[in-house]
Amino acid sequence: MNHFTLRDFAITVGSLVIITVAIAVTQHRTLPFTLLAVSQAPPVSVPSTHVTTTLSDVHAPDGTRKLTMKRVTLTATESAYVVTTSDISGANRTVLYQTVLPVSDDLILPPNSWSPDNKFVFVKITSPQGLSVQVFQSNGEAFGDGQPAVDVSQIFHEKLPDVALRDVTGWDDPSLLHVMTYAADKSIGFSYWFDMWGRNFIELAHR
């Protein structure tokens, strides 16, 4: 007859503790909205044994430039993203944004990323916490306040606390982002313009 010894008990408990700690560590993550300035963030190192996947290119409307995103699988639970702009040929590449996201999150290049004058691009990050929308200057330069990007979603939550961000679809003009919302009762809400210069939201008239 086998007896469960004190040694067996210690091994079992120890294993459970290790597994629990490992799960806790992998589940802990920073907010997906945290940005690393290009100048501050260390380059994301890509082990050569990992698969590099170019996920998407989005052309500027006039076809002269493109926005490119590369995703590198780091582990089973995390991927690194690098977003760049370049000429349509791939020359004159500029890194706009680098980040590491858990698999529950996704970085998307919308089809209407580019402002019609090619001055700005926006990306979307989806996560269980919601939608994050970041606007960059396509030349990689910081904005006047020294920030590398404008966090449209953060400003939205500050200025329109009674509605929820549904989507940002594109540029209604060179500096106006088209923003769609949910009302407080979860029905489709009004659409807004986000004014890049004034950093404010303008409610749109319905058709």
């Binding site: 409307p61 006039d62 089809p111 209407n112 580019w114 402002s115 019609p116 679809t169 594109g170 540029w171 209604d172 003009d173 060179p174 088209h178 058709r207």
Partner: peptide, 11 residues
Amino acid sequence: AYWHNNFGHPM
């Protein structure tokens, strides 16, 4: 149309 980039949506 060179004045907007919101294709896929009525404009």
